[in-house]
Design a binder for these strands. Structure first.
Lengths: 184, 184
DNA sequence: ACCCGCATGTAAGTCGTTACATGATTGG
DNA sequence: CCAATCATGTAACGACTTACATGCGGGT
């Protein structure tokens, strides 16, 4: 999915600047399913603006640099709906760490264990973070981002389910990669 | 992970042609974690050959076009080990279908259900396929591909665990996307 | 002082994709 | 005969990434 469509989608949830859109992809519910960098967001927004799919306006702030807040137009909404109408591309789970495990026998013992355990620890943190988010339920601020509340919960839950499964699997299958020592 | 490293890794499992490497990424254990097209494999192999990391030789076959079989060199093996030595990039799970579910409220009822159910059905098939592969255990042919047998089992099992979790989640959380009708 | 967060953008380069080009053989 | 599988490659294009450029304000 290209940066333009991603920005359009973010803007259906409410007005935002490029910087804010980026944050949504870094911290928000999409975080585990997509990412975009500034260098793809800014040109994308400029292009969308030229094409009339969004309109941006400068917004001065005190104590901070001015920002350009974009709103989606009706044409933009229509374009986004059209984009959603295409059959979705198939999933891709890219994991260099898991790829490395395939070649575990090429790594020295210490490093293999180190990669495995740090990868597992990282994912445990992810899971803990997502669980905490789930508990703290309603986010409090009245932002429009939560319009699609149940879609949000679905996506969040899916991410959690997947990472939880991965953590569980890794905790019970250490022996396949690390050798004789018992799991757990 | 770039195409060159991916090819190098494939060749540590045994000699292969570009065409054969592609098949490994389409059907083999990597299938759920990576993909590469011919147009990235062939130039990658040519480059690796120029750099002395692999050596290719033409191999005539009867009844079929000749193929170029590549073998990894000692330098290549070293380069691959070096590549594995870098900390792995973080995982990326890209799913347009799940992204669409976030915006489920923008889709007409029929289409939403259609996307959901066909996505779920597809993943059930994947799971079934992977389970079948697990049962048929040892692959029979004595190919070197199975050298890294336990790494293979680990990766395969991880893919299965993840997709299984996703299928389970989707079967029990339809209501979040599709509305009032009961799950299952 | 220095680094971090906020804020926007450009330039150069890498990389990969789609589509094209070619051609043999086997099975339906 | 047509489609599929085997087999290798190129060309054009599109997309994203890394690094650079700039600047204010607050905290340590």
């Amino acid at each position: 999915m290209d940066a333009k469509t991603l920005c359009l989608g973010a803007l259906t949830l409410g007005d935002a600047s490029g910087y804010e859109i980026r944050k949504q992809f870094e911290e928000g519910p999409f975080a585990f399913f997509h990412d975009v960098s500034f260098a793809s967001i800014y040109p994308a927004l400029a292009k969308l603006n030229d094409d009339g799919l969004v309109i941006g306006r400068e917004l001065a702030q005190d104590g901070r640099p001015a920002k350009k807040v974009y709103s989606i137009t009706e044409t933009g909404r229509e374009a986004f709906r059209t984009a959603l109408d295409k059959p979705p591309a198939s999933d891709k789970f890219r994991s260099e760490a898991i790829y490395m495990m395939f070649f575990a026998d090429l790594l020295p013992d210490r490093r293999r264990r180190e990669v495995y355990e740090s990868y597992l620890a990282l994912h445990k943190e992810y899971v803990a973070g997502m669980e905490a988010e789930l508990d703290s339920d309603a986010p409090g601020d009245g932002k429009d981002i939560w319009r699609a509340a149940s879609g949000h919960r679905f996506v969040h839950g899916a991410g959690l389910a997947i990472y939880r499964a991965l953590v569980d699997y890794m905790e019970t299958h250490r022996h396949l990669v690390l050798g004789q020592e018992e799991d757990r």
